[in-house]
């Protein structure tokens, strides 16, 4: 059973989950020459209006919740790795940019796709419990939403650690 339990960040603009957050907003191109993952987390979202101080406030075990087409734009792996460096345990989005999805899956970073989520009464700082087997999103023991089941390849790569380890078992 895979469960993610953590404090959430609802990434909002005008009370709506933000769509089309591109990789320059997640991890700006001025930091692209950085290859050391432990240097990446500090720059997360510093080009996303309203969330420039995200990296300072984020804590290990946090969960980031965003809208449609998250991670559109460039192919930079850093836009995935920065969350892992911060200790953010998973990202939940309504949908993902295609390259971002591959990068996250192949590096074994958990990204979940929201099928439905009742945001009434939900705010940043709340704790959620997400079970990827049953597909439920729970708050205080009550089901408030669902995530899409993980694809077989995503499950297998997550279990192996990353695509390199996964391929050894093929």
């Amino acid at each position: 059973m895979t469960v993610y339990n953590g404090r959430i960040w609802l990434m909002l603009e005008n009370n709506e989950l933000i769509d089309d957050i591109d990789t320059d907003m997640i991890y700006h191109n001025k930091y692209l020459a950085i290859t050391d993952k432990s240097q990446m987390g500090q720059y997360t979202f510093d080009n996303l209006k309203g969330y420039e101080d995200f990296a300072k406030k984020a804590q290990p075990n946090d969960i980031v919740i965003v809208g449609e087409n998250f991670g559109s734009g460039s192919s930079r792996q850093q836009a995935v790795d920065c969350f892992d460096d911060l200790g953010v345990i998973c990202v939940m989005a309504l949908s993902y940019g295609a390259i971002y999805k591959r990068n996250a899956i192949n590096s074994g970073y958990p990204i979940l796709t929201i099928k439905e989520l009742d945001r009434s009464g939900l705010q940043s700082g709340d704790t959620l419990n997400i079970d990827t087997d049953s597909g439920t999103i729970e708050k205080d023991g009550l089901v408030i939403g669902r995530v899409q089941p993980l694809s077989t390849v995503q499950k297998d790569i997550l279990a192996a650690g990353n695509v390199f380890e996964y391929a050894k078992g093929l």
Partner: peptide, 9 residues
């Protein structure tokens, strides 16, 4: 287009 892990693979 792909990230660096995907390409290394």
């Amino acid at each position: 287009g792909m990230g660096d892990q995907d390409i290394a693979f």
